[in-house]
């Protein structure tokens, strides 16, 4: 009897696995950069091409690093959440404008709001590749030492902000103060 139950047992395991699988989005690719130092970069600023923004500017404080583009529809949805967050002043938001046109990007900021401390302009998309970006928007939480601690793939929803990002930011700020 037991011998004949083997296939049932294996099948039960299979069903359990599939049930777990239903809860995952197969398109979401976890970043291997979590826990690693944020990649070096040095790019012209979006609004002031003569100035540069680099990794150094992110250090010494917990930051959000948000990758966006004016051609990206869901970035627009995200903007409301980011704007509110910027007004609350909890955490500075740095932007990486990805494969965009400078004028289009600046107009977009005028039209939909500008939550960013400053934006880097990554026209060729090279820096984004170094950060492992595969779709916009994406948002990284970077701690005071410049280590990537979390990556949000897709727009930041209020749920993700309140449940994941803000608690993490507060904890990291605590850590930095100590």
């Amino acid at each position: 009897m037991v011998r004949y139950l083997v296939s049932f047992g294996l099948f039960a395991i299979l069903v359990a696995l599939l049930a777990v699988g239903l809860g995952h989005d197969p398109r979401r690719i976890p970043s291997p950069l979590i826990g690693k130092p944020a990649p070096q970069f040095s790019l012209p600023e979006l609004a002031h091409p003569e100035r540069t923004l680099s990794r150094k500017d992110l250090l010494g404080k917990v930051t959000l690093f948000n990758v966006w583009a004016s051609w990206c529809v869901s970035c627009r949805d995200e903007m409301r959440v980011l704007d509110a967050l910027a007004k609350s002043g909890v955490v500075p938001i740095y932007g990486l404008n990805y494969k965009d046109h400078r004028t289009a990007a600046l107009e977009w900021l005028k039209a939909f709001g500008n939550p960013y401390v400053v934006n880097a302009f990554d026209q060729a998309g090279r820096v984004a590749i170094n950060w492992g970006v595969y779709g916009v928007p994406e948002t990284f939480v970077v701690d005071a030492k410049g280590i990537i601690r979390y990556k949000q793939i897709g727009p930041i929803t209020p749920y993700a902000l309140n449940r994941k990002i803000l608690p993490l930011v507060r904890r990291l700020q605590e850590e930095a103060r100590r």
């Binding site: 009897m1 004949y4 139950l5 296939s7 049932f8 099948f11 039960a12 069903v15």
Partner: peptide, 9 residues
Amino acid sequence: VGLSLLLYA
């Protein structure tokens, strides 16, 4: 499938 395999066993 579960019932079939139980029946089989």
